[in-house]
Design a protein around this nucleic acid. Structure first.
Lengths: 387, 387
DNA sequence: GCGGAATTGTTGCGAACAACAACCTATACC
DNA sequence: GGTATAGGTTGTTGTTCGCAACAATTCCGC
């Protein structure tokens, strides 16, 4: 055996990874379907699944009561006892979840805070919660790591939060803090990028390899890009910041902010103001927009849609995605007339690029960021399941 | 041996591919350095190199007269007898080249045309040229395929030219035509995308994994994006069309075209007009711009630079590349003050993304498109060197 | 209820691959 | 010319995965 291999050779690791990814992403699969999906031999599948089962990453369940001929094939499912802790610190609360490898959410807690949390507080909060859960809901579970979805710029290389404006974090070594507080490996990512990853794996862009995702939050517009089925991080890990782009505004009358960026023009605050609300959750805002008979509200929606459609057209020209996913208030803005928005985008993008384009609304709810953060933890495990 | 394997197992294919890619991209390498670069055993390297040599893909040369102690290691070089034919049809001429696996250009011909060529004419031209070359310059060579760099939109899946406006080609099945005329496998790509690939592999962005490339031609602005070291094609293969984006224009006085796109505002024709030229090659234009004392020429340059910098900032926000490469007249526009342009871009992009950014001028000359087109042919060969 | 067909898990075997160790060879420096 | 250094060569070995034969389980027709 080679000095570079730890017991499994490169090829075998790849095969183990393929299997684990399949059962993780596509849910319970029979050994037979794994054989078909991978092209590997039955005996090889048996061997590989056996190894994954020995490592506790998958379990074999009784076969489905199928109504097909032949010997029933046992189902291979990802273990519910292998979990990642997912964390989303926000200005009003810190949400912590435990997501299992079978995509189930084993635990979930939203901890309201009355002040802006520091990264140290978050680290302690996570450590405490994990300690508590390990004695209760996560008894017997293997916790493989902590994934953090941060509303701000994150340097991919070392998990340094460069700037999270609303949390007032600057150059905070979050990964290091969490790792030393919990003694678990941690990954840190931008919330929108992780949302994109979740939508790509499990949501509205499931199975789609080229995706542009834009999420409209209270504080701005974030985004993520998937190319060839892989998240685009960019050189520093800061990719996807559509909200900071200078918008192409066709008619000057549509401009509200001199030298503004996209999220200055297309903003939740402006929508709220247009219907005379102070604070509102997303359904309330949607309802208010739908029922308002104030023409200025309709104008504001139309204006924002025009600017958004141009921004989307630009992204489509450059990245030619199959699917564009809109989340948050951008979904609210788009969903009353998705075909109309698609047409607007198509009119401004190059014909060919727009041709196969599908604009969709995000389908994952609250759990999106937890799923994405957990996924970023599982990524390493799946890439190399050999313990 | 498995039915899915053609004589080499998956892992071996990967190793063969790694070796071939190394010697192809990084030039002549000693067996010793291959051993170090791959981490494989000496004996394994010897075996793999032997197989590549038997297949005629590499040859071993006498060792470099090194001044180091120890037994000299023979150099492994990619074969100069394995060639790809590269074709670039343009409005005034069709350029055909033969690029070898050692990156040498074995043959090159620019065939002037006095009318717009059709795709059928190009196919015949290529077939004739290849036939002729095979009896002369390419005697004894193995021609592995034809790569075409087309100024227009190309569907990656089947090499259909959707729209090449200046050639007046629409929905032309170019790959099929060339393949049946030459009996060689053909690949078809957008010229700018292939230029980006060439710059990434051999030019100003060599070794850089995250690249945005913009090329300014007489007829517009094309581009290409490299993410994680791989060209971004998009779902249909149309990615990279920066020129069709709606520009973010800060001051309305800079706008020249109502509802225009980037290439309407930032254009070679406008630069030529500003210095009172009709036609000029790139050095002439650069010279004219540098020596002009007409303030309106300087204004036009400054205006185009402003708009370009905003477009680049937008791209940087979304893709966070390490390097932006500018070619054609965009290089002319940028090169007098590259640091100034960088500063303009940094001022408009997010700080973190701009921080590690390097804006460079394209370094490959005329051969760029031929290299890129040949690369697209070699890609398949390198990915699976098993003949 | 029973036998045949279809499908899939299981087992033992063999081919391919690559690492390893020991041995051999070629060059540079003294 | 001797020694140290670096590299090629050869045979052996462990790992992986396909293959083929056999066993297990279900459905279906009678």
């Amino acid at each position: 055996m080679g000095e570079t291999t730890t017991g499994a050779t490169e090829g075998r690791r790849r095969n183990l990874a393929r299997l684990l990814r399949l059962v993780h992403v596509d849910g319970p699969l029979s050994r037979a379907s794994l054989t078909e999906a991978t092209g590997l031999n039955r005996s090889t599948i048996a061997d590989l699944v056996g190894e994954l089962a020995r490592d506790g990453l998958v379990v074999e369940r009784a076969p489905d009561p199928s109504r097909r001929v032949g010997r029933p094939s046992p189902l291979v499912v990802a273990s519910a006892d292998v979990v990642a802790v997912a964390v989303n610190p926000e200005v009003d609360a810190v949400t912590i979840g435990a997501v299992a490898l079978d995509r189930g959410i084993r635990a979930r807690e939203r901890i309201e805070v009355d002040h802006l949390v520091t990264s140290e507080e978050v680290s302690e909060l996570v450590a405490d919660t994990v300690r508590r859960w390990r004695r209760s809901m996560l008894r017997g579970c293997q916790v493989v790591g902590v994934g953090l979805a941060v509303p701000g710029l994150v340097r991919a290389a070392d998990g340094l939060v460069r700037n999270a404006p609303h949390l007032l974090w600057r150059d905070t070594p979050l990964r290091e803090l969490v790792e030393s507080a919990t003694s678990l490996p941690a990954t840190v990512g931008n919330d929108a990028s992780l949302g994109a990853l979740a939508e790509h794996l499990f949501g509205a862009a499931r199975g789609v390899d080229d995706v542009v995702y834009l999420n409209g939050g209270a504080s701005g517009i974030g985004g993520g890009v998937i190319v060839h089925g892989m998240p685009v991080t960019g050189a520093g890990g800061y990719a996807g910041e559509f909200g900071q782009n200078r918008p192409g505004i066709a008619s000057e009358g549509d401009r509200r902010v001199e030298h503004g960026v996209l999220e200055d023009e297309v903003s939740r605050a402006r929508l709220l103001r247009a219907v005379g609300l102070e604070h509102a959750d997303e359904p309330t805002l949607a309802e208010a927009l739908a029922t308002s008979d104030d023409p200025s509200a309709a104008d504001e929606v139309a204006r924002q849609r025009r600017i958004l459609s141009t921004a989307l057209a630009n992204a489509v020209n450059v990245l030619n995605p199959s699917v564009v996913i809109l989340g948050g208030f951008l979904a609210t803005l788009a969903s009353p007339d998705l075909p109309g928005l698609s047409a607007e985008v198509a009119a401004q993008a190059m014909g060919a690029s727009a041709e196969g384009l599908d604009i969709r609304v995000a389908s994952l709810g609250e759990d999106r960021l937890l799923m994405g953060a957990a996924e970023s933890v599982f990524a390493a495990l799946i890439a190399d399941p050999a313990v």
